[in-house]
Simulated scan of single mutants.
Amino acid sequence: MEVREVTLAPGEPYELRLTGRGARGYVWTWRVSGDADAVSVAEGPPAGAAEPALPGATVERVYAVSGRAAGRARIRFAQVRPPYPDEAPYDEFVLDVTVSGAGG
């Protein structure tokens, strides 16, 4: 599991790219802990979405993380297969975000 730390100002975006395994039934989910109101997370279109992916190919997923208010949040991404909720994640990624009080 990789852990990355970033510092953002309120309103500042951060783009995170994670390798997807959708052809194998895996999706990335995320959970925010700590100061959950300090950040927002949104999934964007897959990287290279203009080009069709080959069958069985991995597709890079893009997530936009933005600072909202001063605080510290931990975002835990887990790659899981929804039909099997008791199965351990295939992969995990943790993003520790510090949002500064005013403009970085």
Rank of each mutant, 00 (worst) to 15 (best):
L54C: 05
A50C: 10
A50E: 07
E51P: 03
S40P: 10
V39K: 04
A50Y: 09
P55K: 14
I75M: 00
P52R: 05
G44F: 05
T58N: 10
R72Y: 04
S40H: 00
V39R: 00
E60R: 07
G67C: 01
P52F: 13
A53W: 07
E43N: 12
E51A: 12
A47Q: 10
S66Q: 09
G56Q: 09
A42L: 02
A53Q: 14
I75N: 04
A69E: 09
G71D: 06
G56D: 08
A49C: 08
R72S: 12
P45H: 10
T58H: 09
A42Q: 12
A42C: 00
R72C: 04
A47M: 12
L54W: 10
A69R: 15
G44H: 03
V65N: 00
A53P: 06
P46I: 10
V39H: 05
E60A: 11
Y63P: 01
R72A: 12
A50H: 07
P55S: 08
A53G: 13
G56T: 02
A73M: 04
A49Q: 09
S40E: 15
G67V: 00
A47S: 15
I75P: 00
P46T: 07
R61P: 00
V65I: 09
A49P: 04
A69D: 13
P46K: 06
A53M: 13
E51C: 07
G56W: 07
V41S: 05
R61E: 12
P45V: 13
P52H: 11
A47L: 08
V62L: 06
G56C: 06
A57C: 08
A73P: 01
R61C: 05
L54V: 14
T58V: 15
A42K: 13
I75S: 01
P55D: 12
A64L: 10
P46W: 02
S40L: 03
S66W: 03
V39P: 02
G71P: 03
G56N: 08
